Structures are given as C-alpha cells and as structure tokens.
Computed example of a mutant assay.
Amino acid sequence: MAVIRWATFDCFGTLVDWRHGIANGIDLLFPGQGRTLVEAYNGHERAVQTESPGMRYRDVMAEALRRAARDARLDLRPDDTHVLGDTIAYWPVFPDVAANLTELRAAGWRIALLTNCDQDIIGETQRRLGAPVDTVVTAEMVGSYKPNHNHFTRFEESFGATRDRWVHVAQSYFHDMEPAKALDVPRVWINRYSDVRDPSIADAVLPDLSAVVETVESVNRNARA
C-alpha cells in the first residue's frame, strides 16, 4: 500500500495575498488608507480571534475593521463593516501558487488547507487556487483560530497524519510556525514579507513557493532520518 504524505498549507497570506486584499477592501471605503491601516487591522484581528474564538471569520473581520477605523478616527458606516467578507472571494492568489501546488501533488503529496476562515469563504477561494485540494480544516469546524492547536490536532486525528509523512507550509510566524513547532510538526516558513524573526523555528525558510516541492521533500527526508 502506498504511503500517504500530506503537505498542509495555511491559505490567507501563504496562497492568497491577504495584505493586498485587506488594503484594497479598506481603500474602497477610505481611499488611500488601506496600506496604512493593514498593520493596525492585523493586530485587532488577532485580538478579536483570541477574545471570541467561536466567532465566524466574517464577523471577526468586521469587528477588527471597526476597531482599526475607530483608532484612525475614520467614520465607518455600520452597513460597510462587512466589506472585507464581501470581497474576500476575489482577493488575488499569489502567482506562484497554481503551478507549484500542482507539481507538489504530481510528486505524490496530498494537499490540505488549515485555515482561519469559514466554510463558505474557503469554498469560494478554493476554486481560484488553480490546483486541487484534498481536504480543508477551518476555524468554523474546530471552533477556534490558530495559533490554537485545534486545526493541527483535528487534521492529525482525522487523517492519521504522522510526523514522518506530514509537512506544514505557511507564511505566518505567529499563527502557524509557532504552533507547528510546539507540536513538532515538520514545517516550512514562507517568509514572503522578509520578517526578521528567528528563522530557526522552521525546518526550512523560503521567500515564496517557487522551490516548495524540493524543500518539502527535503524536510520530509530529514524527518524520517
């Protein structure tokens, strides 16, 4: 029987340009403010996810936007608070995604998404990735947001994934690299934004997905050694 190997990916920030999507959504309401408010929004989103782990992601985005707008003294109308949830299905996929996920799957890896979003959102997003995905674990399914370990443990329990045939690939240091390290899941950090934090937390670090196939294979070999 063939050994099943899993490559799990975060979605937003790793496969989908999260920063671009957030900034453009904000610009629809407050032209020219998007790039300025991204970091403030990011901090508020983490806080809301921690405070209300059972809240749907659409509502998390709305509350984080409310707080970011309040801090910036911008007048956010109540009927505009869901602009990010309304546009997320159209956020751009990074150009290195389709070909490299397709190649990874052709190399014998199954692909799963461990994502901090709702079922309907990831369903809309999957159709734009340009490569098949075998399964998904969402925040809505597990009732919490990464860096809580529930995504990882649900995936492990559901598919019998073991550390010698599982590699996690993600951009977020906080949401993905830290919990994956805590759980001793082999991991590849996609450091798209040249984050200066300690790279030794990961088994390998890449600036994008262009070398992800050979890197995942190498990390997996080392895990089996």
Rank of each mutant, 00 (worst) to 15 (best):
Y57S: 01
Y57R: 02
R58W: 11
R58M: 03
D59I: 07
V60C: 13
V60Q: 02
V60G: 11
M61Y: 05
M61P: 01
M61K: 04
M61F: 10
M61I: 05
M61V: 09
M61D: 03
M61L: 15
A62H: 12
A62T: 12
A62C: 10
A62E: 12
E63C: 05
A64P: 09
A64H: 08
A64V: 11
A64T: 12
L65R: 03
L65G: 05
L65F: 02
L65N: 06
R66F: 05
R66L: 06
R66V: 13
R66Y: 03
R67A: 07
R67V: 09
R67C: 07
A68R: 01
A68M: 01
A68G: 01
A68W: 00
A69P: 03
A69M: 07
R70S: 14
R70T: 14
R70G: 11
R70K: 14
R70L: 13
D71H: 13
D71A: 15
D71G: 11
D71Q: 15
A72P: 01
A72V: 04
A72S: 07
A72R: 06
A72W: 08
A72Q: 06
A72C: 06
R73E: 10
R73V: 10
L74T: 11
L74F: 12
L74C: 08
L74M: 10
D75H: 06
D75I: 06
D75S: 13
D75K: 05
D75A: 14
L76D: 08
L76Q: 02
L76N: 05
L76H: 04
R77K: 15
R77Q: 14
R77V: 11
R77N: 12
R77D: 14
P78W: 07
P78G: 07
P78D: 11
P78S: 10
P78F: 10
D79G: 08
D79C: 09
D79H: 10
D79S: 09
D80S: 15
D80W: 13
D80Y: 05
T81G: 02
H82F: 14
H82W: 12
H82K: 13
H82P: 08
V83S: 00
V83Y: 00
V83R: 02
L84E: 09
G85Y: 08
G85H: 14
G85E: 11
G85C: 12
D86W: 04
D86L: 10
D86R: 14
D86I: 08
D86K: 11
T87N: 09
T87Q: 11
T87V: 10
I88C: 15
I88M: 15
I88V: 15
A89H: 13
A89D: 14
A89L: 02
Y90P: 00
Y90D: 13
Y90L: 13
Y90N: 13
Y90A: 15
Y90E: 14
Y90I: 03
W91M: 01
W91I: 02
W91F: 03
W91P: 01
W91A: 02
W91L: 03
P92F: 06
P92K: 11
P92I: 15
P92G: 15
P92H: 04
V93H: 02
V93Y: 05
F94D: 04
F94I: 06
F94Q: 04
F94N: 08
P95R: 02
P95T: 06
D96Q: 00
D96N: 00
D96K: 00
D96L: 00
D96I: 00
V97E: 05
V97N: 10
V97C: 09
A98M: 09
A98L: 08
A99D: 15
A99T: 13
A99S: 13
A99L: 10
